[in-house]
Simulated assay, not measured.
Amino acid sequence: MTRPSLARLAIDHFLAAAALVVAVALAMPAVAQERVTLGWGRLLTNDAIGDGKDRWRTGSYVLNRVRGPSWSGELPTRPGEILEFRLRVETLAPADLVTPGPLDRRYVGALTLGMHTHFQMAGIESSVGLDAVIVGPQTGISRLHGDLHDALGLPAPTVFGGQIADDIFPTLTAEFGRTLDFGSSVSFRPFVEAQAGAETLLRVGGDFTFGHVATEALMLRDNSTGQRYRAVAGDRVQGISVLLGGDIAEVYDSEYFLATDAITPSDTRKRLRAGMHWQGAQSEVFYGVTWLGKEFDEQPDDQLLGSINLRLQF
């Protein structure tokens, strides 16, 4: 699915500048201080803990390792100081894995490996990164999915033979946002994001935070839900924080849909999300729910995904 437009050209220029930032960051000499691991981010997302249905953007898991010389509670002004290394696994599937309908999406198993840098420019919080999105049977995701069905005594899926074929899509993503504070524990962060590669899109949205989960912390954004989760802790005030957000994207291209398919990918995608983060003396728990609008015109319904992150210490 490809839709050339003036907006697409703007994305190309926008991401070309982002690519230059990545190149400059990689070419810069190492900072004087040795890099250390500043924190880990992780988020499990599945519709089994959302609407309870196994379909479409059905599940993902992301693991992030953040390294840098130190963390002062705010982003550095130079790209390349803070590096995030990302591993992500995602499954997209038709609504029925055994007898899929003729107007449903193909199965996709995607394994993502990437590096992103986080910094700020004139108060604008910036994230720029490059990922390799690996798809097809070569990832082993469909084989693992089938083994799981066998172990649970579920019917064997038949959709794997028609899944998106083996390929690797270099994908560049850039996000820019600004946090607006409204008191000691309320903030709003509007953002714009552009992505080119496995999927090419331009997204705008915003997120409210009520509480201290994001105070002096490095927050990351999940690709499929847009949920923001903490990778480097800042203010560890005990209590509950609530996160509310939403965004809309204009989609120009997606490698997850083939021109020969009988379905029509949607030009826009909408997301609404809510989450609750509990911080204890040593442990923390996050649970969020995300509403996803339709990604192709023939999709009969929207869907709800649940996301969870547990950090338990005893």
Results as ranks from 00 to 15, higher is better:
39 G>Y: 05
84 E>W: 04
309 N>T: 09
210 F>E: 08
265 P>L: 01
78 R>A: 14
41 G>T: 02
133 V>N: 00
94 P>A: 09
182 F>S: 01
268 T>M: 07
117 T>Y: 08
222 D>Y: 02
208 F>M: 06
306 G>W: 00
204 V>Y: 00
250 E>M: 14
213 V>W: 14
110 A>I: 04
204 V>C: 02
296 F>W: 09
196 A>V: 01
176 F>M: 09
147 D>S: 13
307 S>K: 04
10 A>V: 06
216 E>F: 15
122 A>C: 11
17 A>G: 11
139 T>V: 08
29 P>A: 07
262 A>W: 10
231 A>T: 01
91 T>W: 15
198 A>Y: 04
58 T>H: 08
307 S>N: 03
64 N>G: 13
246 G>T: 01
48 A>Q: 11
18 A>E: 02
225 T>R: 00
38 L>T: 05
249 A>Y: 00
3 R>P: 07
189 R>A: 07
279 Q>W: 08
61 Y>R: 02
95 A>C: 11
222 D>G: 00
139 T>R: 04
217 A>F: 02
139 T>A: 04
294 K>Y: 12
129 G>L: 00
45 T>W: 04
273 R>P: 07
287 Y>N: 05
158 T>P: 10
264 T>C: 10
172 L>W: 00
220 L>M: 01
229 Y>M: 03
266 S>D: 13
56 W>V: 06
